[in-house]
Structure formats: C-alpha cells, structure tokens
Amino acid sequence: MTNRTPAAQRAIALHRESWGKPAVVSRAPGRVNLIGEHTDYNGGYVLPMAIEFDTVVALSPTRSGRRSTVISEDFGKAALDSKRESIDSTHWASYVFGVSHLLHGHGISTGSWNCSIATDVPIGACLSSSAALEVALAAALLQLAGESWEPAETAQLCQRVENEVVGMPCGIMDPLISACAIAGHASLIDCRLLDVRPRRLPEGTVTAILDTTTRRELVDSAYADRRSACGRAADWLGVAALRDARLDDVERMPDELANERRRARHVVTENERTLEAAQAMCEDDAEALGALMNASHVSLRDDYEVSGPALDAIVEIAQTSPGCIGARMTGGGFAGCAVALVDTEAANAFASAVQESYRVTTGFDARVWLSRPAAGASLLD
C-alpha cells in the first residue's frame, strides 16, 4: 500500500460525491522514454522511466446487474454492459471497456462496479496516459476479484487492449514500465524476453520533460505505416524481427526498398544506442548518455521520420540551453514531448531558458517538468 497522490485525492473525492467510499484505489504512473524509440514492437530494447504523474482509479462493487459506470474528471460519465462484445474504439471509455472485457476473457469475474478516474499525466503528450489508465484499472479490478498477477502479465493484457480494442499497434514498453518501474531507477527492458533491469541516472543529473504543447492522435496511418515498413524490412532480411538484423545487411537492401532501409537502419542503430546508454548509466557517464540521446533524435528525425517542427525546435533549443547534456524527442513522435538529461544544479535555469527561447522561436508556450524516476503501479491506502 502507498500513500495518496494528488490525483488520488481527486479520484477519491469524485467517487465519494457519486457513490460513497471506494473499496479499492490504485495508481499507475505515466512514463518518459530516455532512449530506445520504436524498437519495442521490433523485439528490441528500450530505456524508459516512470514519471511523477499518476492516473488513479477508485472503484467499488455495485448490485446493478450487468451495468458498470465510470466517471472521468476529464471526459465525463460512461456506462458499460458486461455482455457487450465491442465498443467504438475512438471513445475514451474504450480503454476501460478493453481492460474489463479482456479480464473477463481470462475468467476474472468482478461483477458490476462504479469507477472514478483522475489523472495528472498530460493527455496526448506521448507520456503514456492511456497505459497508466489501463494498468491502474487492471490492478483495481484484479484486487476487487481477489486475484494477483505479475506485472508482466498485466502489461501484456494492457498491450492487447491497445492492439485489439483501441486499434493502436503499439509495443509492450508503456504498460510494462507503468506496471513494474522501480523508484529511483530507469529500466533497460528487453521487449522480447520482458527482462527488466534497473538503471540509475548518472550522478548529478535530472530528467527534464519538455512539452511542446502540440498534440497528435497516434491511432492513424503514420504509426501503422512505420510498423508495416519494419515488417517488410524484416521479411527481406530473413529475420523474425529487426532486433535480429545486422546493420551491414540493412545497408545492402536495394534502392526500391529505400524507405524500408531507412526504417530498419533506425531500429538497428537505436537498439545499439540503447544498450550503450544502459552501459553508460552503469558507468555513471552522463556525457556518453547525453551524446547517445542526441544521436537518437537525429535518427528519429532523418531515418524514421517521426519528429516534427515543434519537436525539432524544442530539442535544438534544449541542446543549447544551460546545463543540457543531451536531448531528443520521446514517444510515438510527430508532436508531444521531448526529454533532456540536465545537470541538476542548472535545472531551473535550463527550464526557464527553454521556455523563453521556445516562445520566441515558435510563438507557443512550452511546459517543462523536472521528474525523478517514480515507482510503478500500486494500491493506495
């Protein structure tokens, strides 16, 4: 059990206003990925950390037959029927429906329930607000049913929600780090083996999350196109996934597969960078880690082509701001957030410089958060 977070206080208050005292309260964090982008669905390596923003679910059983009711502080109320087999994938409650529906498919019986949701994870910022919701809800429903799952099992179910219910062909990284993060540590994750190894940030550094305040929906053709291109590249290379490819073989792909070659080159080199970054963290080498983050952004911009004007602008500004050791876009791309490794003593000056320069350069206001690595999902008192 863990003490209440700000989002928990709001979720509990919302539940009390609607139905009374909740029986179960659970939290799960968002995440920022330090390096290892678009490698998880290619069976590769990622290096994310949970952040100090939570999504919280307060839940209690009810006797309303098949009907469950959910209230979100951001999106309002929705009713779910336990006999329902599908839902509009664009509806915000599709994440809630998906978790409940797939748990029922595993024989987890929770009956009907009332649920309130509050979050501090910025929605649409590529900080895994959806994974945080799915993981928190799964933890609450499992507790209500008297069941106990390993974090990796919960993460796999939540990935299925994204893939099968919402229609987002994402990998395992987001729900896995939300479910199993260790406080004070980032995690090197082998997305094929689901092996998770904690890594501390270099001494004297802090992570800065840089929100461009631009937004993009990820459930669209651009994301699916990247994944399809990776699959075609793997087929041509004769490997099960691009994790198994060698750079020399990628560079020999024919010009008619130039697009697939660029996508594969990013994945192969990004896996190498991620493993090198984990080693740099073991050696407390902040400069090496920062250089790898910078190189990752170039690869995402030029080979994988998932950056965007706002992301490029804020990364360039960050890299030239006081105390910055390295910076890159983070998440699915095109919009949302970047991440920077910053000297702790210069962190406040860095944040102010980025916000001012970004406003002058783009005309938009950026948000900058400094975050320590947070703990994964937990039940609350």
Rank of each mutant, 00 (worst) to 15 (best):
G98C: 00
L80P: 00
P122R: 10
V121Y: 03
K77V: 09
W113S: 05
L80D: 04
S128K: 05
H101Q: 10
P122E: 10
E85I: 01
A138D: 12
N114C: 11
L133D: 02
T69H: 10
W113I: 11
L80Q: 08
R84Y: 01
R84S: 15
T110P: 07
S89A: 13
S116G: 11
S112H: 03
A78I: 00
G65F: 06
L137C: 09
S60E: 13
S64T: 14
G76K: 08
E85V: 07
S64I: 07
G111L: 02
D88E: 14
R66I: 00
A79S: 15
L144E: 07
S128F: 09
A138R: 13
S128Y: 08
R84F: 05
K77T: 14
I108R: 01
S89I: 03
K77M: 08
T69N: 05
G105N: 01
L142A: 11
G124Y: 05
A140H: 09
K83E: 15
A79H: 14
T110A: 07
T90Q: 13
Q143D: 13
L133V: 04
K77D: 08
S68T: 08
S86D: 15
L80V: 10
S86I: 10
S72I: 12
P61Y: 06
R84K: 14
R84A: 14
R66S: 09
D120K: 04
P61G: 05
P61N: 11
S109T: 14
I123W: 08
G111F: 02
G124V: 07
F75G: 11
R67V: 15
A140E: 05
K83Y: 13
R63P: 12
A138E: 12
G65D: 12
T62P: 00
D74C: 14
H106V: 02
L137Q: 11
S72Q: 09
A118N: 06
S64N: 15
R67T: 15
G124F: 09
L144R: 12
A79V: 15
S60H: 01
G111T: 05
S128I: 11
G124I: 04
L133K: 00
A79P: 07
A93T: 14
V96M: 06
S112D: 02
S130I: 00
H91V: 04
S82C: 12
H106D: 14
L137V: 11
G124A: 11
C126M: 08
T69Y: 02
S82P: 13
S128R: 05
A145L: 04
I87H: 05
N114E: 11
G146L: 06
A118W: 09
F97A: 02
D81L: 00
G146Q: 06
A140D: 05
S130Q: 00
